[in-house]
Design a protein around this nucleic acid. Structure first.
Lengths: 199, 199, 199, 199
DNA sequence: AACTAAACGAGACGGTACGTCGAGTCTTCAG
DNA sequence: CTGAAGACTCGACGTACCGTCTCGTTTAGTT
C-alpha cells in the first residue's frame, strides 16, 4: 500500500518489529508503548517502522492480523445442537477477554480505534467481521433448521451475543465466566426461537 | 481525596478547568487534548490541575460527573407499557452515541478507562451504574407486573439492551438509529417474556 | 526601608529566618537555596520573607551583617611592626576564604551581587568597606610612622593586598596559604616602602 | 566528551546556539537567560542543547572559548619598556571590564563558576590561564633583562596586577580607568624592581 | 562480477507536551 | 488585624517521544 518498493522489503525486520511490539505490549500498557521502544527492541531503525506503517496502531493491527490469519478462516462447529455450538463459541470469546495477556492487544486496538477512523475500518473488516460472520453463518444454519425465527436480523442477533460481553469487559461491570456466556446464549435463543407450532 | 487542603480550594478555578476541558474536547480529538491547553484556556497554572487531578482523564471524569449530577437521579418513565418505556430510553441512548458532540466525552473516558483501572472504577460507579440501575428498576417493575420472567438475571438483561449499542458504536459495525433501538427492545422482550399461560 | 510597620515586626520570626538561611546555606549550594526552603525551615510563611526582604539575597546579606556586627567595629592590631600586623590580618582573610564553611556565605553574596546592583552597594558599604577601611587605617598609621610612602593611594594599596586573594579564591588559580599571604604582604611593602634616605 | 556521536553533529545548529546565547546575554541579565530562549532564538530543539551541553553555563563557556580562540594565542607586546608594555595590557583589561557589553559574558561565567567546580576548572584552564600566562611571559623577559627581581614568584606578580582589577570590578569599589591601570603597574614595578646597584 | 539504487541500522534533528519546581502574589483562618 | 499556612498564576526546568532527516552500510536486482 505505501510508497516504497515492497519487493525489497526485509522480512526479517518486519517479523522482528511485530514480535517486539507484541512483547512490549505484554509488558507495559498501550499508552506506554512507544515506537522508539519497538524499534530498539527489534534492533531496527525507527524509519523502518515509519516507512511501512503509520504508527504503533498499524503495527499492532498487523501483528494481530498475522496471528489471526495463522488460524485460518474461522469456522464454527455445527453439531446440530445450536445452543451447544453457540455456548462453545461464546465461552471461547469470554475466555479470550478474560485472559489479560490475550486481551492486551484487543485493548490496544480499541484505544487506537477510538481516535483513528481508518484504523477502525481496518480492524472492523480484517479482524472483527470474519469472526462475527462465522457466528452469523451458524445462526443461518439454525434458521434453515427451523431453530431460529426467520424474521430477525441475524447481524443484530450476533451483536446480542457479543455486545454484552464487550460491554462487560470494557466497563468491568461483572465477571466474565462460562456461566455468563451460557446465560447470554440462553437469552439469545429465547429471543429468537420460533413461536410454538400449534399441534 | 488528594493531599492539599480541599477547604482552601478555589472553586472558580475548578469550574474554569472543567469548562475549558469540555470545550476543548468538543474542538479536538481526545489524544490531542493536552493538560497545557486546558490550563491555558482556563487561565490557570498547570500545577493547579496536577494539584487536584491525576491527569486529563480525571478532569474529564469530573466534568462529566458534574454534568450528570446536574440532571439529578436518572429515572425512567413508567407508563405501564414496558416496551414503550424501554424504546424511549434506548432511543435516547442511541441518540446520545450517535451525536458526535455528546459522544466525544464518552469516547475520551473510554480511552482513559482502558489504561487506568482506578478511573475505570470511578466511571463505572459514578456514571454508568446509576444509568444502568435506572433501566433495571423499570425492568423489575415489569417483573412485578408479570411482563418479565422472574428467572432471569436483570443485570444481564440490561446488558442485553445496552451492550449491543456500545459494541456497534465503538466498532462502527452499523448505523445507530431508532429502528435499531426498537429492534433491540423487541429482541430483549422476546427473550424475557413469560411463557404463555395455558387458558 | 520596607513598607510594613516595622514596629509590629515579629523578632522571633526574623531570627528564625536568618538562622534557617545560614543553616541551609551550609548544607546546599547557593543556587539550590530556595526561599521556600528557608520559610519551611523557619516555620514561617513565604510572605513573611517577601514582606521584609526582596529575596534570598537580602536575607543572606542581613544574616551576614548581623553576624559581622556582633564582632563590633573591626580594628586592626597596631604593634608598631607594620609587616607583622598586615601578615596577621591577611592570614586571617586567607583563612576565611580557605574555609569552605565560612566562604559559603561570601560566595552566595558574590553571586547575588553580580546581578543586583542595589544589593551590591549594600554589601560593599555594610560589609566590605569597614573591613577594607580597617586595613587602610593601619596603613595610614604606617605612613605617619614613615614606613609607607606618602605619595601612594592607600585605597589602591588595600586592593593590592586583598584583590589577589579574592582573585585566587574565585578563580581557584592556586592555594590559599599563610605563605601566600606573607608573600603578598612582602610585595605590598616593597611597593610602598619609602625610598632609601641617603646618609 | 559527551555520549552522543560527535561526528554526526550539526555544526550549523552549534553555531546558531552559541550566537543566540551571546545575543541574549547582551540583552538580558544572566539569571534571566534561559535555555528555552536560547533554543527558540537559535531555531533549535531544547534537546539539542542538552545533548551537547550540561546547561547554559556550558554554552556560554564554549561561546567565549570560541571567541577567544579566534583571536589566536594571546601575546603581549615587548617593546623593551616593561612599564609601557604592562600599562598597555592592563589598560586593555580594565577597558574590557569597564565595557558592559564585554563584561556580560565574564559576569555570566563568574556566576556559574561559583557554583560548578567542573566549569570553574574549564574556565580557568581554557580562558584565564592563557591570558595570565601571556603576562607572565612578558614579566619573565623583564627578569631576563634585569628589570624584575629574580626572587619573586611571577604568578604572584601577575595576580598583583590583575587581582585588584577583578576585585574592583566585582565589588564596584571604585572606577575602572586608565589611571587606575597605570597606578597598579607603578605599584607592581615598585614592588619588583631590583635593588639599586651601588655605583 | 561489478554496478546501482533502495532499504536498512543508527541516531541527530526541530518540536510538543510532559510533570515538577520555585518564584512571587493573593486568600483564608487562627490567635 | 497580624501573620502562618498554603493555594494561586506563571514560566522554566530537564525528559521523553514524536515523526523527519541525514548518514554510511548492507543487500538485492540489473547489466
Amino acid at each position: 500500500m505505501p510508497g516504497p518498493n515492497a519487493a525489497r522489503r526485509n522480512e526479517r525486520s518486519r517479523r522482528a518489529i511485530l514480535t517486539a511490539a507484541l512483547e512490549l505490549l505484554a509488558e507495559t500498557s498501550y499508552p506506554d508503548l512507544t515506537v522508539e521502544a519497538i524499534a530498539a527492541r527489534a534492533g531496527v531503525g525507527k524509519q523502518t517502522i515509519y516507512r511501512w506503517w503509520r504508527g504503533k496502531g498499524g503495527v499492532i493491527l498487523e501483528a494481530l492480523v498475522d496471528a489471526t490469519d495463522a488460524d485460518g478462516e474461522p469456522r464454527l462447529p455445527d453439531t446440530g445442537d445450536l445452543g451447544a455450538d453457540l455456548r462453545t463459541v461464546l465461552r471461547a470469546i469470554v475466555a479470550e477477554f478474560a485472559d489479560p495477556r490475550l486481551s492486551a492487544t484487543t485493548r490496544a486496538l480499541t484505544i487506537e480505534t477510538l481516535a483513528d477512523d481508518t484504523l477502525a475500518a481496518q480492524v472492523r473488516d480484517q479482524i472483527l467481521r470474519p469472526q462475527l460472520d462465522a457466528v452469523k453463518v451458524r445462526l443461518r444454519a439454525g434458521q434453515d433448521a427451523g431453530q431460529v425465527r426467520t424474521d430477525v436480523d441475524l447481524d443484530q442477533v450476533v451483536e446480542l451475543l457479543v455486545g454484552p460481553v464487550y460491554h462487560r469487559w470494557l466497563l468491568r461491570t461483572g465477571p466474565l465466566t462460562d456461566d455468563y456466556a451460557d446465560g447470554l446464549v440462553a437469552l439469545a435463543l429465547a429471543a429468537t426461537s420460533p413461536p410454538e407450532r400449534p399441534g
